Amino acid sequence: MKGAEWYQADDVAEEYDDKRFSRGGQLIDEREREAVLRALAPLEGKKVLEVACGTGRFTAMLAEAGADIIGVDISAAMLQQGRQRARELGVEDHLQFMRGDAARLPFPDDHFDAVFGMRFFHLADTPASFLGEMARVSNSQVFFDTFKRGSTRSIYNWLLPMGSRLYSDEEVSRLLSGAGLSLAGSEHDFVAPYGFYRQVPNALAKPVRRLDKAVGETPLGRPLASVSYWNATVSE
């Protein structure tokens, strides 16, 4: 996976959320939480796996909402941040964090009701194998996001330290088919790329976000969107 050593560093884990979800990045956090909650609802008693859970912002949120959830990540430093978050929210008894490789998930087939991964596939060097593993351990649902090829993110993607894998709709369709998944629904958002929102104060980001949403509701919304959320079901 791209940037594996960087991602596992202690200092990166400690600063990860602050760098990405402060300032205008708060709007990204809100949108991603909304996408996950809407896709996975209802959550009470649902058996869920988060792949590449990082600092546990979704894992803890879903535990609060009543899910029986496990978060898996390759970074011990990130998992430590997740455990601390769970303690602070008082949900440490309702979730489990495990260190593991997303390409070889340590669970039997059909073990979870839903499996999801956010901010993961843009770093995947072999996305087909990762998605195949997610599908293997799910008995019903797989949810994930991708950054879109040809979007505004393409303009600055080459400047990023690790770069990002960008996906066309056609490539995602092939990946779903190869993993034995059927597309149940998708959402496409953020004409202005994440990098912009993280660089500006929240007060400035909010009116841009309103404009972003307005463009997203037009026929131009999908082709210009930089982020896609994919909700798939395990084929019979």
Rank of each mutant, 00 (worst) to 15 (best):
194 Y>E: 10
189 D>H: 14
20 R>Y: 07
234 V>Y: 04
117 G>C: 09
69 I>A: 04
74 I>C: 11
165 R>E: 06
132 G>I: 03
202 N>I: 10
199 Q>S: 15
112 F>P: 03
225 A>D: 00
66 G>V: 08
216 G>R: 12
82 G>A: 07
119 R>D: 14
165 R>H: 14
169 D>I: 12
88 E>M: 13
53 C>V: 09
168 S>D: 03
101 D>V: 06
63 A>Q: 09
211 L>V: 13
70 I>Q: 08
64 E>Y: 02
162 M>H: 14
152 T>Y: 14
75 S>P: 10
181 L>I: 00
28 I>Y: 07
62 L>K: 04
90 G>Y: 03
186 S>E: 13
60 A>W: 10
19 K>H: 15
36 V>E: 02
41 A>I: 10
79 L>Y: 15
195 G>A: 08
216 G>N: 12
98 M>L: 15
99 R>M: 11
36 V>Q: 07
210 R>E: 13
225 A>K: 03
125 D>I: 06
183 L>N: 00
49 L>I: 12
186 S>W: 04
113 D>C: 00
169 D>L: 14
51 V>P: 01
81 Q>I: 09
115 V>K: 00
13 A>P: 12
77 A>M: 00
49 L>M: 08
83 R>L: 05
136 R>D: 01
152 T>C: 12
186 S>R: 10
128 A>V: 00
90 G>C: 05
210 R>C: 01
96 Q>V: 05
124 A>P: 03
150 G>H: 03
151 S>R: 04
80 Q>N: 14
28 I>S: 02
178 G>H: 05
156 Y>M: 14
183 L>T: 02
109 D>R: 11
80 Q>E: 15
74 I>W: 12
167 Y>Q: 00
235 S>Q: 12
190 F>H: 08
134 M>Y: 14
167 Y>S: 03
37 L>I: 13
75 S>T: 13
111 H>M: 10
42 P>A: 07
127 P>G: 09
114 A>Q: 00
201 P>S: 06
221 G>V: 02
208 V>C: 01
205 A>Q: 01
225 A>I: 01
110 D>Q: 13
80 Q>R: 15
77 A>G: 05
202 N>E: 11
90 G>M: 01
204 L>P: 01
103 A>P: 03
84 Q>D: 13
143 F>T: 05
27 L>P: 04
100 G>M: 07
161 P>R: 07
131 L>H: 09
148 K>S: 08
84 Q>N: 12
152 T>K: 12
68 D>F: 08
6 W>E: 10
226 S>E: 06
126 T>P: 09
133 E>S: 00
45 G>Q: 04
43 L>Q: 00
1 M>Y: 07
106 P>A: 02
142 V>N: 01
48 V>T: 03
45 G>N: 07
124 A>Y: 01
70 I>E: 10
17 D>Y: 08
100 G>L: 11
138 S>K: 08
192 A>K: 01
94 H>K: 13
198 R>G: 01
220 L>W: 12
29 D>F: 15
131 L>V: 03
92 E>N: 04
4 A>V: 11
183 L>F: 01
5 E>T: 12
230 W>F: 02
184 A>N: 11
203 A>Q: 05
112 F>V: 04
10 D>Y: 02
200 V>E: 01
